[in-house]
């Protein structure tokens, strides 16, 4: 019994790392996605092209490759730019999820009826006021389901950081498995991931309920 608790404790320590990566990624990639989505619908062509490059490269290549690139590749490309393991992972995740959120938000923004912009305009609202007061709040409601999906995927994707030897849930369980030759730690790890995703699902369900007062 105490063996189980000890294992669980060690795996949960990894859970702290996983959670930290999860929240850092969301905290930065969501705003990044919003800004890039606005840039992607910008009237300036050069801005749109840069954004197109960003999203197609990031979404068209494996996340694992991107992690290797940032951690091992960047220092070769730019000597002196050696990121610490967790920072490298976090930066990669932010850029990667930022690209997916860019596409989701762009679709959301473009689905808002032109009449909303015109109604804002005739009230004398500026572009920034129109976006922050009228367009983005309506966009949030529409993008909640795909954003929830991304958040669930993110919980699972965090396991990729084992390749940098970061002590997350997966790595810590794997350590015990190799040492003691038992699969119990894997079962515990699966349970922890499931529990985290259960939390994510609940959170978004609550949020969707809050937004369901209209339309």
């Amino acid at each position: 019994m105490s063996y189980l608790i000890k294992s669980a404790q060690y795996i949960l320590e990894g859970g702290a790392v996983t959670l930290k990566l999860f929240f850092i990624t969301l905290a930065f990639s969501l705003p990044l996605g919003f800004v890039c989505a606005m840039a992607k619908t910008s009237r300036i062509r050069a801005v749109r092209i840069v954004m197109e490059l960003y999203t197609s490269i990031v979404r068209g290549t494996p996340l694992l490759l991107q992690i290797f690139f940032v951690y091992y590749g960047l220092p070769i490309l730019l000597p002196g730019l050696r990121l610490e393991r967790f920072s490298a992972a976090a930066l990669t995740f932010v850029l990667n999820y930022g690209a997916y959120f860019t596409e989701i938000f762009r679709g959301g923004i473009q689905s808002i009826d032109r009449g909303q912009y015109e109604a804002s305009r005739v009230l004398g609202m500026s572009y920034v006021q129109t976006m922050t007061r009228i367009v983005l709040p309506q966009t949030i409601k529409r993008v909640l389901p795909p954003v929830a999906n991304e958040a669930i995927t993110l919980v699972k994707d965090t396991a990729l950081v084992v390749v940098l030897g970061i002590g997350d849930i997966l790595r810590n369980s794997k350590e015990i498995v190799s040492r003691d030759f038992t699969i119990v730690p894997f079962v515990i790890a699966a349970g922890v991931y499931l529990l985290m995703n259960y939390g994510v699902v609940l959170f978004f369900k609550k949020l969707e309920q809050r937004y369901s007062v209209y339309e």
Binding site: G115, Q116, E118, A119, I134, P137, Q138, K141, Y214, E215
Partner: peptide, 9 residues
């Protein structure tokens, strides 16, 4: 406007 264009939120 013909289609009202009220803010639904």
């Amino acid at each position: 406007f013909q289609n009202f264009n009220l803010f639904p939120h």
